[in-house]
């Protein structure tokens, strides 16, 4: 696992190294101004998240604060435990296929209430990073071209997102 760890820390510096050389040696144009333009876009899209995050984090923290999520988790936990999925990530499983910002809010809530290095948080991190919001993606992709029959797209996408939940939990146990 140590090699894996070292390798993980190499990816970002390597990309940064390539980008730095481009900024230093690129003659076609001023690449630092491209950096500034991209950074402005990134900051803007992060700020644009605030209104949605505000509503949904309140929603999710009510869901956990009122005790209803514990109640649901308590009902489901024998089943979830049997398949190795921690019941704390249940709200994430609900929101992940539907909305990116809702699941990001749920994810933040899981991190802060369970501690970011807990098993549940690690599973949640892998789930968040490895699959996208499947229902949302399929709606957006096909609605623009007015395609109504998406055929096998949705069943396969849902299957993948379930697969990613199991796989994430297995990998979290294997790696950490």
């Amino acid at each position: 696992m140590e090699i894996v760890e070292k390798f993980s820390f190499l990816v970002l510096p390597l990309i940064l190294l390539v980008a730095s050389f481009i900024i230093l040696l690129g003659k076609k144009k001023d690449y630092f101004s491209s950096f500034l333009k991209g950074a402005t876009d990134g900051a803007t899209s992060a700020v644009k998240l605030l209104p949605t995050m505000c509503a949904l984090i309140v929603g999710v923290s009510m869901f956990t604060g009122s005790g209803i999520s514990d109640f649901i988790a308590h009902i489901l936990s024998p089943f979830f435990d049997k398949i190795g999925v921690p019941s704390e990530i249940f709200p994430l499983i609900l929101t992940r296929p539907i909305s990116g910002s809702a699941s990001l809010a749920t994810f933040g809530e899981i991190l802060s209430s369970n501690g970011p290095d807990s098993y549940a948080s690690l599973c949640a991190s892998i789930i968040m990073a490895s699959t996208d919001t499947v229902i949302y993606v399929i709606c957006i992709y096909f609605s623009a071209s007015r395609i109504k029959h998406t055929r096998h797209a949705l069943p396969i996408a849902l299957f993948i997102s379930i697969l990613s939940i199991f796989l994430s939990c297995i990998l979290a146990r294997l790696f950490f």
Binding site: I23, S34, F35, G38, A39, T40, D41, G42, A43, I57
Partner: peptide, 22 residues
């Protein structure tokens, strides 16, 4: 949550813009 991720999102997007435009 939003404030804590602004910095990294801005930085990463900037780096990617450099790669894209090159």
């Amino acid at each position: 949550v939003v404030i804590s991720i602004i910095g990294f999102m801005a930085f990463w997007n900037g780096i990617m813009e450099v790669l894209k435009s090159s």
